[in-house]
Design a protein around this nucleic acid. Structure first.
Length: 379
RNA sequence: GGUGGAAUGGCCGAGUGGUCAAUGGCAACAGACUGUAAAUCUGUCGACGAGAGUCUACCAUGGUUCAAAUCCAUGUUCCACCA
């Protein structure tokens, strides 16, 4: 269980194709993992997620702890049974909420005193709390409780987060090994360090020395430039063990995914496909489109004629724009559906190319055809 | 037929003498969104102009006033109630 097998590597880049075995099936990498924070990938049913070949989805410890809470999840028989999803699940530790809900909390080495964003009630997040909750959720992959830095941040603050993340990783693993079922659940370590090479190196060394079945790169895609992100990924590519899966947390912008794969990343997750979908922005093989734009009002062609998703095979841009303009739920669903399938397919195509030995061509071709005039960072 | 009320920018609707090119909301147009406090948020929204600014505007016409979307007169249309 939790064996990672690299089945092909790109000679020219760091890209690799692999298989990661979990209790709910084998995950073929590179892989994009849709985010289902509250035990639902927004706007999508499990059946639809299977149709677009979602191999694994995410859930969130903090959010599910607040609602519905451990007791109900436990009575349901775990998160898989609760939400009727029988493929792998990865749960985020709540570490990201320490970052995204920073105004509501006080952080010390011991724990994070946090106010619920729902009703203001107090809760204490800690490595032990996170491991216990993730144990109840029963995810295939649990994540260490970490501290993610804002961007930009000083070297000093980033160093503090690295130190704390290592401390918490040790406590996460200790509690996990003593209380969770490590034959049914893998615990991944998370490397921090913001955009500072020395801190990345230090964090990698400290976390890898703790020996986890997989490693995540945290603290990126928080506002830094794409160039800075790629640089950090280059640094990480040299530091991370080749025989373990590598997970770039929070990345889902199409170009970032292919550039990440080229730098040895195996797993990605992101809210972008679903959030942008609900907000009527879609990704296509030619770039990004704001589907509320008047320019699509009388366009009767599909979003992306190269896409194999339900939305692209059945609906015109004119109709989809109409759904967006009228606020129909179906619009949010169809855009999310397409964005997820599009993003998942990037990883699928990259995998095929890596196995076929044509990944460099795939990468160049993708970069050449994916235009995003509005995103200056998308170079 | 009588009495009372109302007419404001694409729509709804504030505004009762100057600080009004005119609050708000909607619509429209544009933008943002990266381990989800997001089916959310931001900007623009009379015309011309890069801008300073100029012009045209609150049913119509005429009037009062230094000054009118705001006051007066007449007309037009609409609404309510009474016959």
């Amino acid at each position: 269980m939790f064996e990672f097998r690299v089945i092909a590597e790109c000679k020219a880049t760091g890209a690799r194709a692999g298989e990661f075995t979990t209790p709910h099936g084998v995950i073929k990498t590179p892989v994009f993992m849709p985010v289902g924070t509250l035990a639902a990938v927004k706007a999508m049913s499990p059946r639809e997620l299977v149709e677009i070949n979602s191999q694994i989805i995410l859930g969130n410890t903090y959010h599910l702890y607040l609602r519905p809470g451990n007791e109900i999840i436990s009575k349901a028989g775990g998160l898989h049974a609760f939400m009727n999803w029988d493929r792998p699940i990865l749960t985020d530790s709540g570490g990201f909420q320490v970052f995204s809900l920073a105004k509501l909390q006080k952080i010390t080495d011991e724990h994070v005193m946090c106010r619920s964003h729902i009703d203001g009630s107090q809760l204490i997040m800690s490595p032990e709390w996170s491991m216990k909750t993730q144990g109840v959720l029963g995810s295939d992959i649990a994540m260490c409780f970490d501290q993610c830095c804002e961007y930009p941040t000083t070297h000093e603050r980033a160093e503090e987060a690295v130190r704390r993340t290592t401390l918490w990783a040790k406590r996460s693993k200790d509690f996990f090994m003593a209380n969770n079922d490590s034959t049914r659940q893998a615990l991944f370590g998370i490397i921090q360090g913001s955009v500072y090479d020395d801190l990345r190196a230090r964090s990698a060394e400290e976390i890898i020395s703790l020996d986890f079945p997989g490693y995540a790169i945290g603290g990126l895609s928080v506002g830094e430039s794409h160039a800075a992100m790629y640089h950090s990924l280059d640094v990480m590519n040299d530091l991370m063990p080749k025989d373990k899966p590598r997970y770039l947390m929070g990345v889902g912008y199409p170009l970032n995914i292919v550039e990440g794969i080229a730098r040895g990343v195996d797993m990605f997750d992101c809210v972008l496909p679903t959030r942008n979908g609900r907000n009527a922005t879609v990704f296509t093989s030619r770039g990004r489109l704001n589907m509320r734009g008047k320019t699509h009002a009388e366009n009767f062609s599909p979003l992306d004629d190269e896409c194999d998703c339900y939305t692209c095979k059945n609906f015109t841009r004119a109709y989809l724009r109409h759904l967006a303009m009228t606020g129909e739920i179906l619009g949010a669903r169809l855009f999310s559906w397409h964005n997820l399938r599009f993003t998942i397919r990037i990883a699928e195509m990259a995998r095929e190319a890596i196995i076929a030995g044509t990944f460099p061509d795939f990468l160049e071709n993708f970069k050449a055809t994916f235009h995003d005039d509005n995103n200056s960072q998308a170079e």
